[in-house]
Design a protein around this nucleic acid. Structure first.
Lengths: 112, 112
DNA sequence: TTGCTATACCTAGCGCCACTAGGTATATTG
DNA sequence: CAATATACCTAGTGGCGCTAGGTATAGCAA
């Protein structure tokens, strides 16, 4: 279980990172995060959708509707140019904090 | 500049990690964090003191007053047994998220 | 037919927490 | 005798995860 503060800090970077790999929609993003984290991170819909709406409002991502074969509709999101830039900023900030924490924990800092 | 969500996620782990190295007081903790982060993380007092009070309320840390030579008083904090346990939990949660992010960013995950 | 589950979207209200913007007090320095 | 650094505190605000609901379609089983 990931505490809410850590969830808040990682939600934007995670969504941006996933969309950097290709367009995706909400329900699928939740499953991807769970998969990528080995089941450690389990997002609720009530957590993700507001994040997506905020990112779209900030124009870091754009949305468009798509129909599947069986008629079910999905709202896909695509990373914008500024979203790509934002992703690297988030990554640098994260790594900066991670380096500090690793150092204090007495383990080797991770420069990746 | 570290965004507020990332600051929120790292404040507890950072304070616990610093106190794990020895007793310390508020004003000094702010400087230690700035130093340890290479100037990247600059905490305000209005951010740190509530954190310390919360941690004390949760009994993860304990406080005691001390007089310096020049007569100025300082409120020192010490990590409790449950605080030490909490530190490792925070570290594991952090590393879990970090591993996921690193993986999605396409860099080698950091297992430290 | 009638549920039940999975998929797929949405939001109002609550509570936590960083941050702003103040306040108090003492020691040092110009 | 101000200005700065040290050292503590807190009320109010806004952002955001989360709970707990809602809507709707597809597929499957009783």
């Amino acid at each position: 279980m990931i505490p809410k503060e850590l969830a808040a800090a990682s939600s934007r970077p995670l969504v941006l990172a996933i969309l950097a790999k290709g367009d995706d929609y909400g329900y699928s993003i939740i499953q991807r995060v769970k998969e990528a984290s080995g089941g450690q991170i389990e997002w609720s819909e009530g957590m993700l959708y507001p994040v997506l709406h905020r990112l779209e409002k900030e124009e870091l991502i754009r949305s468009f509707w798509k129909q599947t074969d069986n008629g079910r509709r999905r709202k896909y999101y695509r990373l914008s140019a500024s979203g790509k830039r934002s992703l690297t900023v988030h990554r640098d900030q994260w790594n900066s904090v991670h380096k500090t924490l690793s150092q204090l924990w007495g383990t080797e800092p991770c420069f990746s």
